[in-house]
Amino acid sequence: MPQIAQIAATYASQIFWLLIVFGVIFFGIGYGMFPKIQGTVELRDRKIADDLAAAEAARKAADMTEEAYRAKMDAARSEAQQAAQAAKAKAAAETEQRVKAANAELSAQADAANARIAAAQAEALAGIEDVAAEAAQEIVARVSGAAVDRAAAAQAVKAALANG
């Protein structure tokens, strides 16, 4: 096995070159390049984490905006509903009042008309009695030639009417 048979002859050369080569690798690559490459990786990881956090914050802000928008919309809608309801109630009350007033006026007019009708009826009735008494006087005078005085004729008419 040359590794052991040659060890006395070659150990110095192998150790010498190994220390040089490994030293270059350690200082040049291990300490020179490795931290820079890892730094790039860390920078990227941090950037990704930051971007994700920013996206998350933006999402939260959007959610909050939407919430506020929805709340405002709800408030506006309920306000509009209230206003509509109030307007409706007001309109209904006004209409009722107007109808009531019109009713009252109409019924007053009707009452007045009724009174006028009653008066006219009474007047007409009184007129009929007069006309009937006169007619009776005339009829009696024509038929019998007897003159009936006015009071008697009216009496007779009234009696006949009351019976009739």
Partner: peptide, 20 residues
């Protein structure tokens, strides 16, 4: 000390070059 540039040293340097 015999510190000749041997085939072993050559392959060490090759290794270094590859890693670099």
């Amino acid at each position: 000390y015999d510190i000749s540039f041997t085939n072993s040293a050559l392959f060490m340097v090759l290794t270094l070059a590859c890693i670099w």
